[in-house]
Simulated scan of single mutants.
Amino acid sequence: MILTITMNPAVDKSTTIEQLVPDKKLRCSELQMDAGGGGINVSKGISELGGKSIALFPAGGPNGETLKRLLSEKGIDCAIIAVKAETRETFMVTQLSGNKQYRFVMPGHEPDAGTTERCLSQLASMDPFPSIVVASGSLPPGVPEDFYAQVARTVKMKGGKLIVDTSGAALKAAVKEGVFLLKPNLGELASLTGTAYLQEDDILPAARQLISAGSCEIVVVSMGASGAMLVSQDFHGTAPAPDVKKQSTSGAGDSMVAGMTWMLEQGKTLSEILRFGIACGSAATMNPGTQLFRKKDVMQLFVANEEERR
């Protein structure tokens, strides 16, 4: 069983406009609304692939009700921590002229007192306990920086595997505690290893440094248009990003995590996990707004990659 944790969920709203012009009334296309936030996006991706997961998150106010409805419509099982604080929203406008994206991301409201403890209690009491837990996304104001580290302790105690995809102080705290898989970008990997800047040749030793320190068992480093590198104690491999027509980069990282998690649950090889994750992330960029990938696009990209390898 897979569980995703999203402490800062959102209702993602997106629209398009021909040209952004200041001080003018701008006529937009029909508003698109999607359930969003790191872990929720991972659950959506797993569902699109035909898998099952449970999405754990706090939700409150009218936006919280919208979030529940959007996930219910997709048939995603949820473990919801009811709060009074309004669930945040994000807004993205795509300027059709030049395909430029403008993303407005709200910080989220400080949750009610005790929300963190209720989430951790909900996690610890799950029976059966999930074999894989994905903790993804930013932390809202008021949630302690070591929240993901606390999640890591619970998951390790229960014998599960924890995947963490976050940044900043929350990432550093999780690394200090130790997790199963990390997905930093180049800048985050540099920060974690105390380096000002990393070039591609530096990735492997930097990742191995984290593994040797007990920070994680697997590191998957996002390299943007260059793809990604996966490193474990006994394996390392790189997968390039396929050449696709990009419409939006929103949710590409979460889509990659969804694909890797889905393959990990099925016991696939590390090479397959990496290449499938890249296919999911690339497929997400083919869709507009805050939509994620379509399974048929993922499979076409993955199969094409397999054929090229032969």
Rank of each mutant, 00 (worst) to 15 (best):
N185M: 07
L204M: 07
N185Q: 12
P240D: 09
V220S: 06
E217D: 11
E188M: 12
H236Y: 07
S226P: 13
L198N: 04
C216L: 00
L182T: 05
N185R: 15
T195V: 09
M229D: 08
S232W: 04
T238H: 13
G194M: 04
L204F: 10
S191L: 11
F235A: 00
V220E: 03
S212H: 01
S191N: 14
G214H: 00
Q209D: 02
I211V: 05
T193Q: 04
Q199W: 10
A239R: 04
A225M: 15
L192N: 01
P240I: 06
G194I: 02
S226T: 13
F180R: 12
G227Q: 09
E188R: 14
K183D: 03
S222W: 13
P240F: 12
A239I: 03
S215G: 04
A225N: 15
D202N: 06
E217P: 00
A207C: 03
F235M: 03
D234T: 07
Q199R: 13
A239K: 05
P205G: 11
G237Y: 07
D202M: 06
A190N: 01
D234L: 00
M223N: 14
A241L: 05
T195G: 12
L198E: 04
A225V: 14
P240K: 12
P184A: 11
A213E: 00
M229C: 14
D202Y: 09
S212C: 02
Q233F: 01
A213P: 00
M229V: 15
E217W: 03
P205D: 05
I211L: 01
E200R: 14
G224L: 12
G194A: 02
S191V: 15
G214S: 03
P184R: 11
P240R: 12
G237P: 03
S215Y: 01
P184W: 12
K183M: 12
L186M: 15
S212W: 00
F235D: 03
L210A: 01
T195S: 13
Q209A: 04
Q199E: 06
Q233W: 04
A225G: 11
A225F: 14
I211K: 00
I203M: 05
P240G: 04
F180S: 05
Q199M: 07
E188Q: 15
L182M: 06
T238L: 06
A225R: 15
V221S: 08
Q233G: 06
A228H: 04
R208S: 02
I218W: 11
I218F: 10
Y197D: 08
L192C: 07
V221W: 08
L230I: 10
G237D: 07
G237F: 11
P240M: 11
G227R: 10
V220H: 08
I203V: 15
S226Y: 10
G194K: 00
H236A: 07
G194Q: 02
G227N: 08
P205A: 09
P240A: 07
L192V: 10
G227K: 05
L210T: 03
S215V: 05
S232Q: 05
L186S: 12
L192I: 09
V220G: 01
S212T: 00
L189V: 12
L210Q: 00
L189K: 08
